[in-house]
Design a protein around this nucleic acid. Structure first.
Lengths: 202, 202
DNA sequence: CGACTCAGATACCGATAGTATCCGAAATGT
DNA sequence: ACATTTCGGATACTATCGGTATCTGAGTCG
């Protein structure tokens, strides 16, 4: 009820705090790593104290889950965009590989996800949450694959679900390897995709 | 120079200590995870104090590298054995998939490797060591693939190195996923291998 | 047999995730 | 409008763990 024009409710303020914390945590987790980033540092960089983290998240794990959510959203957007240009199959694959070149391994999405998965595997809650997200990703990929197969009039050698699982595995594996050995070329990805997606009979 | 028959030199004793530490660390790292296993616990379980670890290894990281080495040796042995039965390509792939079913994801080799890689990525030394091991694995796989292709008289759609990289990525990715979601079936692995290894012109 | 070495033990330090408690401003009721 | 309650965030503290410094006693060598 202040006379000030910048009226802000308590919930709004907290939402801002939360958002800012996720933003900063994302930045730091990606560059420094999950375990290597102290909560203190996240909080202080965001301009708060550790208390702010604990009144917005149950702990470091839940904060990281929020970070992963925002990253997943970003990744899905990128993938869908790569495929949405409706030209022929080859240029779609090229677009996807181009996306992969920019996004797989170098910003360490997968490294983070995979470090977190391993480090937090003792927690049944975290495990469940991660599995849920993986299944969503897989379903999304499978849907995209069927859609594209239909549009291009292709019959695939693998079921959409198998193809999705393969591509996700490939992405995770290559992301993990590339995050510590940048010399690994994603062109392998292209070749693998082409042979996975190659139509069944010729 | 004791009268006791069990004469043992100091170096031998130390080698035993080292071996025992690696053994126990392997067990614990695989079941509990790298970060979640205190060095104290490793040392005490092995019947020593933490001092023993530090007089045999530069620290936790080097201990884990030793663990990974023993695991790599074991894995390579399993893979080579799976392929060494010289029958037709299909049954070789079946044997490999059977190995994968037993070894990918469930004993958490990859989870450990990948957690370690992510957690220790800030250390240039560790990064170099891991990259070295990856390249060895890749070279080994590529060699195996060329050999098999020759024996079976097959011309591959991918270069041996590309195929090796793809398979390694697939293995890492599926290992990571399966270590927290056991419902993922390795049969996908079989399908992926078949389409990656499929001969070029029919 | 005496001096030395070094594998392993003990004691300590610093960092960090998590907990308990506190404070003050916003929300609420009268 | 004022008193009361609520609760987001701050502060202070604890527990755990990797790493370092120092010590000790059995094994080694002159």
């Amino acid at each position: 009820m202040t006379v000030d024009g910048t009226r802000i409710t308590r919930a709004e303020r907290q939402a801002q705090t939360r958002e800012r914390l996720v933003e900063v945590a994302c930045e730091l987790f990606l560059t420094e790593g999950y375990a290597a980033t102290p909560l203190d540092k996240v909080a202080l960089t965001a301009g708060f104290s550790k208390g702010a983290v604990y009144s917005n998240f149950s702990g470091k794990e839940e904060l990281c889950l929020a970070v992963l959510d925002s990253l997943h959203a970003e990744q899905i957007e990128g993938i869908v965009e790569a495929f949405s240009a409706r030209t022929d199959l080859d240029s779609r694959i090229d677009a996807f590989v181009e996306w992969a070149r920019r996004s797989v391994g170098t910003p360490r999405y997968t490294a983070l996800e995979v470090e977190f998965a391993a480090a937090a595997r003792h927690s049944p809650f975290v495990a469940r949450e991660l599995v849920k997200r993986h299944r969503d990703m897989r379903a999304m990929a499978a849907g995209l694959i069927t859609q594209i197969a239909e549009e291009e009039g292709i019959e695939l050698a693998l079921t959409p679900d198998q193809a999705a699982t393969s591509l996700l595995s490939l992405g995770i594996g290559m992301g993990a390897m590339r995050s510590l050995d940048a010399t690994i070329d994603v062109s392998v990805f292209a070749a693998a995709i082409r042979s996975l997606v190659r139509p069944k009979a010729q």
